[in-house]
Design a protein around this nucleic acid. Structure first.
Lengths: 195, 195
DNA sequence: AGGATAAATGAATTATGATTCAAAAATAAT
DNA sequence: ATTATTTTTGAATCATAATTCATTTATCCT
């Protein structure tokens, strides 16, 4: 019998990240993804139900990784809340520094995912948010974070700021070094922008 | 001769904002936009070249307004840089408070616009950015803003944070009041999150 | 009241690209 | 070397919805 060679599922996912980043989900053609992955169009359907399932898997893997990392971070007792938030910021920059195209997909294509509540990406995303808010709440209860900060509002602001930075950086990497962005985020959330 | 009644172009734009917000640009059907506007499918094409031109016009109007306002703000000599930034934040919240659907379109659909450099929305966007960076640079040169802040990085972070907040608020307005978001943005950028 | 003109309609056309599936290719087993 | 089984291919099918345009409608003008 014929036997599978290589890891075509992973090849498809890598190719899809590139193509989605370049063209966006709706303008991305299965044909182009297949070509980029070095396989035939029809083969994509041996590994994924349809185009949306490819996007879903990308987000499932990504949120799965993010959740795993934040969860481990949250269990460390040697770090205070601010340190943890800094590590979280580094986590985002580190993941996307390696894969700028993934940043573009992450920021722009989540809106095209199905939102059925048995989708794994949603589960991981919820768990991530839970841990993120726990981290902040801990900072407030231990007295290192200003209790006037609303946890939800800060989450939106930080995550939104990071997303937009990463998207812009990924689209024009020469314009600004990712480490300048990283340092500025930390500076702004810690001290604000006043002298 | 037959004569135009009402303002169908405006009706189409209003309808399109609703439909784009609900379904996203690519899943939005011209038929649905027309129906929402109370006209026939074909009539949309009497006012716009195609679907993309409708989205373009929405962004042209929006960035046009944003530019007009920031430009007036920047000319005021009675406000220091921090005050101006606060007014700018209020500007965003005020515009989108009136039209939550517009916030959703603003955040999620800019990626589907054409980027031909003679598009007016691009021009307005560039002018807006120019004025925004001028505002920050002025804050640094007059000594109210920390010179370690990178202007570009701060712009990304603030704009990204605002966008994500507004998008989430617009999609679930009961979850969190827009004024809590507004106050938190101001608090965070001014003082940071430490106690 | 009838003609001229512009606006509006919506069914027919058309383009695109996702998905399917019959056929071909590869290799393990005998 | 032949067969059985599984993988892979890519051209044909199919669905969708954007766009067009022949026809209809409305109202101004004389």
């Amino acid at each position: 019998m014929r036997v599978k060679e290589g890891n075509k599922e992973a090849d498809i996912l890598d190719a899809a990240i590139k193509v989605f980043a370049k063209s966006g989900f709706h303008n991305a053609k299965i044909y182009t993804i297949a070509e980029t992955a070095g396989i035939a169009t029809g083969s994509v359907y041996l590994y994924f139900r349809n185009k949306e399932a490819v996007l879903n898997k990308i987000f499932e893997n990504l949120w799965g990784q993010l959740y795993k990392e934040i969860s481990e971070l949250n269990q460390r007792s040697d770090l205070n809340a601010i340190d943890k938030i800094y590590y979280l910021i580094d986590l985002f920059f580190d993941i996307f520094f390696e894969k700028p195209e993934l940043a573009i997909v992450f920021v722009n294509e989540q809106t095209n995912l199905s939102h059925a509540k048995d989708d794994l990406w949603i589960r991981y995303n919820e768990l991530f948010i839970e841990d993120g808010e726990k981290m902040l709440a801990e900072g407030i209860s231990t007295g290192v974070i200003n209790p006037n900060i609303n946890v939800r509002a800060f989450r939106y602001f930080l995550l939104g700021g990071l997303r937009y930075m990463l998207d812009n950086w990924a689209k024009d990497q020469k314009a600004l070094s990712i480490n300048v962005l990283r340092q500025n985020v930390k500076l702004i959330i810690k001290k604000g922008i006043l002298v």
